[in-house]
Design a protein around this nucleic acid. Structure first.
Lengths: 385, 385
DNA sequence: CTGTTAGCGCCTTCAG
DNA sequence: CTGAAGGCGCTAACAG
């Protein structure tokens, strides 16, 4: 069965019309219209021959592709893969092909992909995940903490959502600037852009109300009777982490239960980061706080593991809360209190935004506090100091 | 900053050579070679102008794209997203762009994507995820079981918005045949193909030793003293599920501890499937088995949730084991005994295979049994009958 | 309303 | 070894 791809001209010949007519019949030309019977004949011929247009040719002729670029830090991370699912769905609905780029946290790759998208004339590009401001490596605060079993070597294979922003420092600025420039160039070239997380320059962004969500969480926990908190705050310079941290501590300060300065621990945005930070907290003299808020679920799960490994219990010895409500983690035990972010919807929203189907700005996506067993209500009972 | 993409001819002009020479200098023509100084000049000009070829144009001129199609059932599923991470890495290394398709379990979409890949002249295509053998729908054994919190619906919500396709699928069988045909056509058209999971026709496949892994697991558990088992077997007709089930039960039969026929429960391949099947098992008269093997980790986690919701404990009342060793689930408590499949490597392997860099056939990927706290060794102690 | 004619950006025979 | 010319499949001005 030789299967040399069917071309439009073959369809035209089969239908007995000219190439142009066939083209117009198939993708309803905006300007010219085609007589009904002819169009029927063309469509019929196309169907018979199983014709399907060559995207590359169309792209070249039209000057723009049918591709939507999606760049994430790590597609294996549930945070990103859920967003990707939303993007995939919306893209398909829009008749676009999504090209995936998993940068593995390299901002160089990220930049390269944006440029690729531009010269490839992608219809739009979606950037999920934040950029770190300071140098790249130092974020890794503590040593990786292996869990009981020899886990797969995946050090960072955890959540690393959002995060970007610009700490007023002047170092490491170039990468950020280059990215912004590339994005702007892409946009000027007619491409749609959407960021997920925090803004860069004035580019369209699906903002996630990190601070507000964290503040809501703080208030809910305070209502539950918690007063002494600690925060596993993620790496310095990580915008998402910083927003969640400040939203949380800010709300508590207002409630009169401020978090002590040494109650805010910097650590990697990963499972291992949460694990080691929690371990440090446990080993510290002075006792545990009543509740530890990890700025994302994956870190929270790492923290819970650290608690268990220390022979302690969640929530009896310390309560734990996270952020994101990663679906795959829905059944950890005890159930993890968190702030649910509708990640798949965020992906769809970002797609619409990038495609200009959602206005220029989108309303920030607000999370919803989900209280579970990891943070039971405290009825007057106090914990050891 | 107007940024009309730089074309090759601009580079040629800048370098003072002809278009042809520029082309040859840049992508080292196989036949003709270019004088050193000229090539230098061209390369220099290209660099200065930040030239980068237009993939669409190249694709059209060369007759093949630089795209690698990856089609998975659901990119939000950690199983697939981990494979995707491997594919993304290998593809980047090979200089290919990966186009992602998340079919949401619709074999029509799957087929459509394969055909898209063909007419789009993708360099290669990777299909991950098992196809169902018999009919499609009946797999949905039990009703979806919501967990404590109102989680996102995850049960069967799949091909709901299938659009208005014509394909009146009588008995899903044709879909399988059509898929195979499409894949063959793609291959004959010069594209590389790689499947992940089980074979289809004689196509290249990265096989996962599901039966062997499950058998290893069964033996390990038997060594631990377990004798009475049940299996949450996934949907009927699901090849992967069936292989894992038969591997497990087969090994046990050999060991003299066969699983009773009614100890094998069909259910969806999802978290909710595992949950409801386990609930059924619990509500059944006759008591629980010592250990329940769910054919994948996500189901196992659902099963553990069901146990907890029934006021029982894992592993005190019943031990649970899964399959895959999903990284994100590494910290569930108690630690889940499972069979580790190096999913990211599988993705890389599949990419190499599809690109013809790994021979025609690959050796099956063998899993590794990982024993954790969900299946403690049984030292003579018996459980209620 | 339909057909003819240029290209899109690049690769690749062909001459020179 | 280099330059000129043709064509990939399709769309979009132009005629007719």
């Amino acid at each position: 069965m030789s299967d040399a791809p069917v071309t439009l001209s073959q369809v035209a010949r089969e239908a007995g019309v000219s190439l142009a007519t066939a083209s117009r019949a198939i993708n309803g030309s905006a300007t010219r219209s085609v007589r009904e019977d002819l169009r029927e004949r063309v469509l019929e011929a196309a169907r018979r021959l199983a014709y399907s247009p060559d995207p590359s040719a169309q792209a070249m002729a039209r000057g723009r592709t049918t591709a939507l670029g999606l760049v994430v830090h790590d597609i294996a991370d549930p945070y990103f893969s859920t967003i990707a699912a939303g993007v995939a769905r919306a893209a398909e609905q829009a008749g676009l092909i999504v090209t995936l780029a998993s940068t593995e946290h390299s901002s160089e790759r990220e930049l390269a992909f944006v440029e690729l998208a531009r010269r490839q004339r992608s219809r739009a590009i979606i950037l999920a995940g934040g950029r770190l401001e300071p140098a790249e490596g130092p974020a890794d605060g503590g040593a990786a903490a292996p869990s009981g079993d020899g886990g797969a070597a995946d050090g960072g294979g955890a959540a690393a959502d959002g995060g970007g922003g610009a700490p007023a420092s002047d170092d490491a600025r170039p990468a950020q600037g280059a990215l912004e420039a590339a994005l702007n160039a892409f946009q000027e070239a007619g491409g749609g852009v959407a960021l997920v997380g925090q803004p860069i320059g004035g580019l369209p962004v699906v903002e996630i109300a990190n601070a507000a969500g964290a503040a809501d969480l703080a208030r809910a926990l305070h209502d539950h009777g918690y007063r002494r908190f600690a925060v596993l705050a993620g790496p310095a310079g990580h915008r998402t982490a910083a927003d969640r941290t400040s939203g949380f501590t800010g709300a508590l300060a207002e409630l009169g239960s401020p978090v002590a300065p040494d109650g805010v621990l910097a650590c990697p945005f990963t499972r291992d980061g949460g694990y080691s930070a929690m371990r440090d907290l446990i080993e510290r003299t002075g006792g545990l706080p009543e509740l530890v808020f990890a700025v994302n679920d994956v870190m929270a799960v790492g923290a819970m593991a650290a608690v268990r490994d220390a022979g302690l219990s969640v929530p009896d010895d310390v309560a734990v809360a996270g952020f994101d409500d990663i679906h795959t983690l829905r059944d950890v035990s005890p159930g993890l209190t968190t702030v649910r972010i509708p990640l798949a919807e965020v992906g769809e929203l970002a797609t619409d935004l990038a495609l200009g189907k959602a206005g220029d700005t989108s309303t920030p996506v607000r999370g919803e506090v989900v209280l579970r067993a990891s943070t039971p209500a405290l009825f007057g009972k106090e914990r050891s100091a």
